[in-house]
Simulated scan of single mutants.
Amino acid sequence: MNILECDDNHLRQLIFEKEKVIVKFIDETCPICQRLAPTFTKLASQPLYSDVTFVRMHASQNPVSSKEVKQKGTPFFATYLNGTLQECGLLSSEEEIKQLLQRLN
């Protein structure tokens, strides 16, 4: 599965269209964001997560996301199930992302 690039408005629509969504909010200057980019891409292509929609958002280009990320930092991840926020927080490793996905499934 491909990773969707999204903005604040599209995300609101997407979380109600798709059952399971994981969003990675990034900042272009964040070294951890850059380090986790290949991991996020790899996980998005694994059959185990074929029912999850993977989304990447640039925090600086989206006011709602930017506000959340400024409070928390990057890379900030959020999962949604049937339109409802399940979990969110800062993650810094592949294992943490996998654990977040397992709790979503």
Rank of each mutant, 00 (worst) to 15 (best):
N2S: 11
N2G: 04
I3W: 02
C6I: 10
D7R: 13
D8L: 01
D8H: 00
N9K: 12
N9D: 15
H10Q: 12
H10P: 02
L11E: 00
R12L: 15
L14E: 09
L14I: 14
I15T: 06
F16L: 14
F16S: 13
E17F: 05
K18H: 09
K18N: 12
K18Y: 12
E19C: 07
K20I: 00
K20P: 07
V21E: 01
I22Q: 05
I22C: 04
V23W: 08
K24P: 00
I26L: 01
I26S: 00
D27S: 06
D27A: 06
E28W: 01
E28H: 00
E28F: 05
T29R: 12
T29V: 15
T29M: 15
C30G: 08
C30D: 14
P31A: 09
P31L: 10
C33S: 02
C33W: 06
R35L: 13
L36N: 03
A37N: 07
T39A: 06
T39R: 09
T39Y: 07
K42A: 11
K42D: 13
A44W: 08
P47C: 08
Y49T: 00
Y49I: 04
S50H: 15
D51I: 10
F54N: 04
V55C: 11
M57E: 03
H58R: 10
H58L: 10
H58F: 06
N62R: 08
N62Y: 13
S65Q: 02
S66G: 10
S66C: 15
K67A: 10
E68S: 04
V69K: 12
Q71P: 02
Q71F: 03
G73S: 08
T74W: 08
T74P: 05
T74D: 08
T74S: 15
P75C: 12
F76V: 04
F77K: 06
A78M: 09
T79P: 01
T79I: 10
L81V: 06
L81G: 01
G83H: 05
T84L: 11
L85G: 01
Q86E: 11
C88E: 03
C88H: 15
C88G: 03
G89P: 13
G89V: 11
L90R: 09
L90S: 01
L91R: 15
E94T: 12
E94Y: 13
E96S: 09
I97K: 10
I97T: 02
K98W: 10
Q99Y: 11
Q99H: 14
Q99R: 15
L101I: 08
L101P: 02
L101A: 02
Q102A: 08
R103A: 02
R103H: 08
N105L: 11
N105V: 04
